[in-house]
């Protein structure tokens, strides 16, 4: 954009004006479009927030933009009733373990599938990513039987490992796509410098794939943070349960306590958004260009 306006400076004043008007018009339309889409995305969040400040009686009748008598204590009630203090730490632990596991294992495998040669490579790749495709209706029962045999029922590990496995297919697929497109020159020169496979992978390929790793981290964080079906299957002890177990308190078979549920949802969403905010910088930096120059 800057280069182009610099060029147009060489033209007549009229052209400059025309360029400017055109740019402004385009910019207005672009922003109008972006704002429209943004509004549709923000509205539900705002609705959930506004609902969290209402009472069970007013939640579906009071349609005001912001309730006139905001019930801030809903947040305190939700926090204590849902026992979030305990579950937060658990969820944090599970999320970190699963995400680190997926990033490490998937990136290694993806790197091998993209760069290294070994017999049976293509078949193996297909088999691994096919886990994404077969929706196994009975898999939960089979998984439970398996975890029981391994002695992993009601343990943290029994909850973490299946989730790492669950994230691998997408991870390998996504990272391989990005590795395939990375320039090979840097790796080649490192190899000439005497670096082994692992050092090339760890010191060169991984940093280059940072945007893709960030995307994968974002996806997996959200998946683990929102997981509850597997937790209900594998875990019994309350001390081991993740965050979503807390939200169940507000959703009875017949009664849903909407304001408290919404307060709980807002509380659980905030950390995900904060982490996303942090990670998206890594998507954006686009370090590839700099690396090639280096």
């Amino acid at each position: 954009m800057n280069t182009r306006s610099a060029l147009s400076l060489t033209g007549t004043a009229n052209e400059v004006n025309y360029e400017r008007v055109k740019k402004l018009t385009v910019s207005v339309f672009v922003h109008a479009f972006l704002v429209l889409v943004s509004f549709s995305c923000l509205f539900p969040l705002w609705w959930a927030f506004a609902s969290s400040l209402k009472t069970q009686q007013t939640v579906f009748t009071d349609l005001s933009f912001f309730p006139s008598q905001p019930q801030w204590q809903n947040y305190l009630t939700a926090w204590t009733k849902a026992n979030f203090g305990l579950y937060f730490l658990n969820s944090l632990f599970y999320t970190v373990c699963v995400v680190v596991g997926v990033l490490l294992i998937a990136s290694m495998a993806a790197y091998a599938f993209s760069r290294l040669q070994f017999p049976g490579k293509n078949v193996l790749f297909l088999v691994l990513i096919s886990t994404m495709m077969i929706p196994i209706p009975g898999s939960f029962i089979a998984l439970y039987v398996l975890l029981n045999k391994l002695g992993l029922v009601d343990t943290r590990l029994g909850y973490i490992l299946p989730q790492i496995n669950g994230g691998l297919a997408l991870g390998i697929f996504l990272l391989k796509t990005f590795f395939d497109d990375l320039p090979k020159e840097l790796e080649d020169s490192a190899r000439i410098d005497g670096c082994g496979r692992f050092r090339v992978y760890w010191h060169i390929a991984l940093p280059l794939a940072r945007p893709a790793l960030a995307v994968l981290a974002i996806f997996n964080i959200l998946a683990v943070w929102n997981e509850y079906i597997l937790a209900m299957l594998v875990l019994s002890a309350k001390q081991l349960m993740p965050l979503q177990r807390g939200l169940m308190v507000f959703q009875g078979a017949h009664i849903t306590q909407y304001p408290l549920l919404m307060a709980g949802i807002v509380i659980t969403i905030l950390p995900v958004l904060a982490i996303y905010l942090m990670l998206q910088k890594h998507i954006i930096k686009g370090i590839t260009a700099g690396a090639v120059k280096g």
Binding site: L104, I105, A106, M108, A109, Y111, A112, F113, L116, Q117, F118, L124, V127, L128, T131, L146, L150, L161, I164, N165, L168, I172, R197, Y201
Partner: peptide, 14 residues
Amino acid sequence: NYVFVLPALLLFLI
């Protein structure tokens, strides 16, 4: 080279 895919393969097999 196989070592790279080993962890993924192990989890998959189990």
